[in-house]
């Protein structure tokens, strides 16, 4: 599979969990990484991992929901060179029954998951258009495809990410900019382990997941790397679920 030697990738929400994993895997394939996160210490740690993999890293600390702040920190990353790959990973989640969702909570989920994705695209698009190349990988969720009870605003926000993916794929194909999405299902991140515990994870895996296990962040990162690379040069507007056999839905 094509590598990412010499490419520069912006990974949002790269300080922890899957975002950190994406940054590491892209760096292993030869990409330099702009590590965006809201938490500076976390971003610095990821940047160190990128450098350990032998690649350059630039830390961009801001709230992704703040488009002006994001544009400013991405502007500072220009020293690294032009951004060829954008991984829209930053996302938040809150399991709240529908009737109990406060307006502020709803707004915050959309501000990060949808407006954050929008802001990052705005920040990198002019350069990609100028160079007539670019690969965007949005991180959706199987929740946005098939729904999850008690997860209204998250499901809706991830459904919106799929909408962005397809609309952008069509709008920017003329500049050879490809836009795709990965759609993680049950992945054992630090957050999952905290929320469910290993016992809970094992139980759900046995009962509900055809492959009878959870995935790991790397399982998602490999799909991100595939879509970011030239091997996927004819793939645009598509969604790859990484879900162990859950979400076997649309074709």
């Amino acid at each position: 599979m094509a590598g990412l030697e010499g490419r520069i990738a912006l990974v949002t929400g790269a300080g922890t969990g899957m975002g950190r994993s994406h940054a590491e895997v892209l760096a292993e394939r030869g990409a330099d990484i702009v590590v965006q996160d809201i938490v500076e210490d976390a971003a610095l740690e990821t940047a160190e991992l990128v450098r350990t993999a032998g690649r350059r890293a630039h830390v961009a600390v801001c709230d992704i929901a703040d488009g002006v702040a994001l544009a400013a920190v991405i502007g500072e990353a220009a020293a690294l060179g032009p951004i060829d790959v954008l991984v829209n990973n930053a996302g938040i989640h809150a399991l709240t029954p529908f009737e109990e969702i406060a307006e502020a909570e709803f707004d915050r989920i959309f501000a990060v998951n949808v407006a954050g994705t929008f802001n990052a695209m705005r920040a990198v698009l002019p350069g990609m258009k100028d160079r007539r190349r670019g690969a965007i990988v949005n991180v959706a969720s199987t929740s946005g495809q098939i729904g999850t009870p008690g997860d209204t605003h998250y499901c809706a926000s991830k459904g919106a990410v799929l909408g962005l993916t397809k609309a952008w794929a069509k709008e920017f194909a003329a500049w050879s900019i490809r836009v795709n999405a990965v759609s993680p299902g049950p992945i054992a991140t630090e957050m999952t382990v905290r929320n469910r515990g290993w016992e809970g994870i094992r139980e759900r895996a046995e009962k509900e997941i055809p492959l009878r296990r959870y995935g790991l962040p790397r399982d998602v990162s490999y799909a991100v790397a595939y879509l970011a690379g030239d091997g996927a040069g004819f793939v645009t507007g598509q969604v790859i679920p990484i879900a162990g056999g859950l979400a076997i839905v649309g074709i």
């Binding site: 069509k170 990484i242 649309g250």
Partner: peptide
């Protein structure tokens, strides 16, 4: 695309259809 789905990097992906069509079709999700 075949190699990605045949290799160890897609071990948690099953039951999926990966369209590679230059954007000609963006169908089900």
């Amino acid at each position: 695309a075949v190699a990605f789905l045949a290799g160890p990097e897609s071990d948690f992906i099953t039951g999926q259809v990966l369209p590679a069509n230059g954007g000609a079709t963006m169908a089900g999700i």
